[in-house]
Design a protein around this nucleic acid. Structure first.
Lengths: 341, 341
DNA sequence: CTGAAAGCGCTTACAG
DNA sequence: CTGAAAGCGCTTACAG
């Protein structure tokens, strides 16, 4: 007579290893060994095949919570991004998921937009609770006394390297220098900067790179609090409008979405691009090639970046020693919103 | 003398409830009760406060794998989308994550693009293994004999209702009718359809809706295998070019990205929009308003759709009875790629 | 109000 | 080659 299910235990529907073992006439440990691919040399091939068959016919799937509890590491990776609805981060998500899936891992995300003060704690909690095995942090740096400071072995930083942590750095400083050099060579003595209105470290780093480049080329980089906006269409077009009102003729933008907003406002006002206004974006979103004239922009190759970040994180989780920083090239792609000579 | 850690157990760093209990001088069950918010009337307030304090000082986070194993339900929801890098699905991801986080749940995704034949099995496995508590399926229908058939209580379908399953339906048929009516009223007797080259059910359903509407308006809806493309820039612009070569003057597109590609090709060829070519998209991506002329399109409100889907899924998981289908309105937004009379 | 104990479903030495 | 057993860290009746 089968044991009555204890009333303490919650209702559950799935087949367990014990049930497979009973049906196959073997021990539960034999089932476990076979299912986890550790049967070689420990279970007779015929027995293993029989177990496989019975497991298949019962639709058995090892319970991941039990496995995680027992082994101490989960199969979930976190990806911290500003906003999953931004096409670049969408690409990162997509590519990181593909890369993780290739290793039998799943991906979950943490959005920082609107959670600027809490994402670090939330991520730290998810790491402490064993929910996440590790995480990739895009575009952000750690705050003073961050609860993530001592998580070196479980974190990888992307876009803005974090000292002492594994990082995927982007060569955007070189791209910024190229952009500034290009605009300076067209005779601009002033370059305006259309900035993203988010506290993420990545944007602070982008203006800084441009300012450095401007200094080297003897050109002025102008910034203004009124030339800042989130990526939403209305604020972005409004900020772009103010920048045009203020007479900008050469503009570098924190992001393609901002560049596209400026592009749009220029078209509306019949400002000729690139003759009367030159625009450089960052990202090389698909849309950069769907507007006319096509956008000159700094290409951020999401697929390579995501692959590098996942590889670095897997090394970290496996305790493998790796060079601390991987650098990904981010070429300036000259298209039609800058003049060609 | 502290007990030596069993050599069988894997290395683990985190604080456990037992450690908190020891430090606080109470039982492990008291700690559990307090941490899960079930202390009211069971633990003296002073004791509870003390436990809270000790837990906080030790940085204690309940292990989620243990909780999941014990309670039988995980805190992870799945979102099945064609491709996370598509801005609409990026928005869905973003909004669904916000909605889920509001209930203490996390979100993970499953991409169908490139995994047309395996996503159902993969999702079924993740459900069976207890990895996912439930999932939201966007734009897809179940195949014959799908392993997901009997998962009614854990699934919600979005975009294309699945018979017998909880669904968030979109009123896109009405929008398609409006679009066709608009174009017909401008004197077009033929409307061309620029189609998405993915097997997802949602696209099949969109053409079908347009074909129905065309029939009702005595107008011909033309489709052609050469007028199909994925959302990548090159194939999309190539297909748009063929459609223009073939003389289309009024075009409905499966997606804004396709509409934008057509918009781009038209600009390149100096085809005047909307006078010589009218374009209707689907999605109302941000970019629809960043091109000039702005795109007429069917608005898909990702935030409402995601919120409705998460709400329905939570009802399902809680065993609450709900109406099977929630319908979200998807208005046709008339902008400048269609004529205004 | 509090604690001891069972048990969720696995993995992994260990004994045979 | 195989099985019995311990134990991962919780939640939850149950007894006091």
């Amino acid at each position: 007579m089968p044991r009555t299910r204890s009333t303490t235990s919650p209702a559950r529907g799935s087949t367990t290893a014990t049930e497979v073992a009973r049906a196959a006439g073997v021990s539960q440990s034999a089932v476990s060994l076979v299912m986890s691919g550790k049967a070689a040399g420990r279970i007779a091939p015929a027995t293993a095949a029989h177990i496989q068959e019975v497991a298949r016919s019962l639709g058995y799937r090892p319970n991941v919570a039990a496995r995680t509890l027992r082994t101490g590491t989960s199969g979930l990776l976190g990806l911290v991004v500003l906003d999953a609805s931004h096409p670049f981060y969408g690409h990162m998500l997509s590519a990181a998921d593909d890369a993780a899936a290739g290793h039998g891992l799943a991906l979950t995300m943490i959005q920082t937009r609107g959670h600027e003060d809490s994402w670090e704690q939330r991520l730290a909690d998810q790491l402490s609770s064993g929910h996440l095995a590790g995480a990739i942090v895009c575009g952000e740096r750690l705050s003073e006394g961050s609860p993530l400071r001592d998580r070196r072995d479980r974190l990888v930083f992307v876009e803005v390297p974090e000292p002492g942590m594994r990082s995927v750095a982007l060569a955007t400083a070189a791209a910024a220098a190229d952009a500034v050099a290009l605009l300076a060579s067209h005779g601009h003595s002033e370059i305006a900067y259309l900035a993203a209105d988010y506290p993420s470290a990545v944007f602070a780093s982008r203006v800084a790179d441009c300012a450095d480049a401007a200094r080297q080329h003897g050109v002025t980089l102008r910034t203004d609090p009124r030339w800042r906006a989130t990526f939403d269409v209305e604020p972005a077009t409004a900020a772009a409008g103010r920048l045009l009102d203020d007479g900008a003729r050469a503009v570098v933008c924190d992001d393609d979405l901002l560049a596209l907003a400026l592009h749009r406002v220029a078209a509306e006002r019949r400002v000729t691009v690139p003759d009367d206004l030159e625009i450089v974006g960052v990202g090389d979103l698909d849309t950069a090639r769907l507007v006319s004239p096509e956008l000159t922009t700094v290409r951020l190759p999401a697929t390579s970046i995501a692959a590098a970040a996942v590889a670095l994180l897997l090394d970290a989780l496996a305790g493998r020693e790796t060079p601390e920083t991987t650098t990904v090239e981010t070429p300036l792609v000259e298209r039609r919103t800058t003049r060609s000579v």
